[in-house]
Write a protein that binds this DNA or RNA. Structure first.
Lengths: 193, 193
DNA sequence: TAAGTCATGTAAAAAGTTACATGATTCT
DNA sequence: AGAATCATGTAACTTTTTACATGACTTA
């Protein structure tokens, strides 16, 4: 009757396998670049950490601070590392994508055309900005780490792989937004010339 | 104090704007290709349809059948169509991506290398199969509809746009899976020659 | 006769978001 | 003095998944 580890649990363990962190720090790390593929608010993180601790996958230590509020530093255990390790090669549940934007595209034929074009153009720009940020991370990583990024047993490789997925995803999404916006703006004529 | 329409509600309205359908048929339509970007089980669909009806966005009609169980046919109302129309151009909530596979990649540095390589190679093939299916849909649409796909006020254009997103998404994901698998198999040597 | 499809629902549990709650310190 | 950051939690609500429940007809 062993309690199962949630996906969020594995996400947290994945960060703690790199370094010990407080709940607050984990909440920040869950923003970027991990937050690109998994998100959680602190209200979900704190209880989850408590749960991981009862399962013996992490330990916590109270760090007293003078200038700031005290914090609890969480450290992954050997059992935690082993659980993470075996989970990492088990088949992943097929990722269901939920995109409100694509859903809107599915009903765009009913919509006001200029407004719809503006929406997709705006989304295109939003993702261009996001891509630029990811590309910045990539340049930093490639410069700072070099060949270390090719060592598949280093956490840097794993972070880099994740980042590459983010970059590819954004690139594709931008192109699609551009295509939709172009179509809505009448950029593609049926009878050219 | 008007009750809000959920995203699932809009997904269902988006299908009903094309044709009247029963809850059962909607559940099937939610599999593909709409299911590519939004999913729901029948246990969520039936109550949601009842809710849309109390909001006056759909009507239902009991269809008696001899060879099969009777069914309720749902039809979108003018109010439903109008709600869908205005929702389609409102800004979309930024789509949070939740991918267990990318999460596993983030911890792949701890994993057994051959097992990890097999996982990503398998995922690559799974998505290649998915892509082949989407490409098949695309060929059918392009052949069967031709220039109608360029008319942005036809539902065919909207379905086509959605499908294009699916195709782009799968292509990108395949390339990424291949890259990760290659790296794990040691395809990229640090010191060539 | 067993499995599969058609057809519609409810109940319980899990996962995730939003809001509530507190309080110190630092920066503007 | 007010806003922002650091820090940790709980409560209420919404959304989604899994399981329960039923029953006729069709195909292998």
């Amino acid at each position: 009757m062993e309690k199962p580890i949630t996906t969020l649990g594995y996400a947290l363990l994945g960060l703690l396998a790199r370094q010990s962190l407080s709940g607050y720090d984990l909440a920040r790390q869950m923003k970027a670049p991990v937050g690109f593929f998994w998100q959680a608010r602190h209200s979900q993180i704190y209880p989850e950490l408590a749960r991981l601790q009862t399962l013996g996958l992490v330990t916590s230590e109270l760090i007293e601070q003078q200038d700031r509020p005290d914090k609890k530093l969480y450290t992954i255990t050997e059992a935690g590392r082993e659980a993470l390790r075996s989970w990492a090669t088990e088949p992943a549940a097929p990722a269901p994508i939920r995109s409100e934007l694509v859903l809107k595209a599915h009903s765009v034929w009913l919509a006001d055309r200029p407004k719809a074009a503006a929406l997709f153009r705006e989304e295109q720009r939003r993702h261009e900005a996001q891509l630029a940020q990811y590309e910045g991370y990539r340049v930093d990583m490639e410069r700072g780490l070099g060949d270390a990024l090719r060592q598949v047993d280093s956490s840097h490789f794993a972070s880099y792989a994740t980042l590459r997925r983010g970059i590819g995803y954004e690139r594709e999404l931008i192109e699609w937004c551009r295509w939709v916006a172009d179509q809505l703006e009448g950029g593609a004529r049926e009878t050219p010339g």
